[in-house]
C-alpha cells in the first residue's frame, strides 16, 4: 500500500487519540480492515503527523521482515526422510 506524502505543515503535531489511532493503523497494515481501512488511513495520514510517522515506521518494519529476513535452507534429505517414515508407519 503506497500512500503519497503530503507537506507535513498541514498536519497537526499532536494525535487526538494515540491508542486508538495506532491500533487502527497497525490493524490496517496487517491487512485486517480491507477496503474500509483505506479511507480512514488516507484521512489520518493527511491530518496527523504522529500517525503519519508511526505508519511509515511500522510499514518499514513489516517490509524488511518480509523481504530481508534470511530463510534457513531446508536440508535436502528432510522431505525424503519424512516420506520414508510415513511409508514405514502405514
Amino acid at each position: 500500500m503506497e500512500i503519497n506524502d503530503q507537506a507535513s505543515g498541514e498536519r497537526k503535531l499532536q494525535c487526538d487519540d494515540v491508542n486508538r489511532c495506532f491500533q487502527l493503523l497497525e490493524s490496517i497494515l496487517d491487512g485486517e480492515l480491507g477496503e474500509t481501512g483505506k479511507e480512514v488511513l488516507k484521512e489520518k495520514l493527511a491530518k496527523c503527523q504522529p500517525c503519519f510517522e508511526h505508519y511509515h515506521l511500522e510499514q518499514a518494519i513489516r517490509d524488511v521482515l518480509k523481504t530481508k529476513c534470511t530463510k534457513q535452507p531446508v536440508p535436502n534429505e528432510l522431505a525424503d526422510s519424512i516420506r520414508q517414515m510415513i511409508k514405514e508407519s502405514k
Binding site: V18, N19, L57, A60, D63, V64, L65, K68, C69
Partner: peptide, 26 residues
Amino acid sequence: VDYQSTTDLRAESVKDMLGDEISNAL
C-alpha cells in the same frame, strides 16, 4: 496496550538495515 510509547527509530534507518541485522533482532 499502551500505544503511547515513543520510539525514536526512523523508517529510513530501518529500510537501510541488512537481512542479518533484522534476523538477529528477531
